[in-house]
Simulated assay, not measured.
Amino acid sequence: MALVTRNDIDGIAILSLNRPEALNALSPSLFVELQAHVKTLAEQQEEIGCVILRGEGRSFSAGNDLKAMQAGEQAPHPLFQVETVEMIEDLPQPVIAEVQGHCYTGALELVLACDLMICSESAKFADTHGKWALTPLWGMSQRLPRRIGVLNAKEMMFTGRVVGGAEAFEIGLVNKCVADSRLSDEALKLARSIVENSWHTLRADKMLVNKGQDYGLKDGLEFERKNSPGRASGEEERLSGFKKS
């Protein structure tokens, strides 16, 4: 059975973590499959304009698979998981995280690499590194403060408390919180509204915003002037073939 599945709909790739019986715990084997999908998507800029990352079953993911760690299961190399997370962040296409149920620790680090996030009312976000005497390696200390501010990030990290879906929206962790029954429809609706626009512009916007975060305002403005690709020409100029009239 595939641990990560892919389904394409009108220029949108939906990647699903597929270990529902284990709350989609992030085993090394799951990461191997996830990275393979991400590598393929990076080469499909003209076929895929947006990506949705979700989990099958009642949870997005309970986090790193501690049982697999205890059993000695290992990734291909020590930085394989963080490499995969960074590859998701670096995908040219916008990536939407669709979160229901548990989204703990490593799973939270995973969705923080996504550009946008929609959660359901059942969503439960937490950083539980402190409960296991572990420390962040997949980006928690950098991405969480940038997403929700240093004060909120420190509280989540220091206490390990659970943040529900409604509060996640209030503190800016997610774009929207919706009823569980509407979650997948709302994520797909957002993805469709994205792929209706120029994919050339989408790729440029993502690159400029993401890389621009490395600079202060003045240097960021200079970075934009020097690196904005400008208006598309020729074949690139077309809008998505999936744009509705």
Rank of each mutant, 00 (worst) to 15 (best):
T159L: 04
C177G: 07
R161K: 06
A153N: 04
A187T: 12
L183C: 12
R192C: 05
S193K: 10
L188W: 07
A187C: 13
N175A: 12
V178N: 05
L190Q: 14
L173F: 04
A191M: 04
T201D: 13
M156T: 03
G160D: 00
D185Y: 10
G160E: 01
E186I: 10
G160V: 00
W199M: 09
V178T: 09
E155P: 01
A153Q: 00
F158E: 08
N175W: 02
G164K: 04
R203F: 03
V162A: 02
E196C: 12
E170W: 01
E170S: 07
K154C: 13
T201W: 12
E170Y: 04
L173Y: 03
T159E: 06
M157Q: 11
R192D: 10
S181G: 13
D205E: 13
V162G: 01
E155H: 08
D205G: 10
D185A: 15
S181D: 14
A204S: 08
N175C: 11
D205L: 13
V163H: 01
S198M: 05
M157N: 00
S198R: 10
M156H: 03
E196R: 11
N197A: 07
R182P: 08
D180F: 09
N175E: 15
S193Q: 12
L188A: 11
S193W: 05
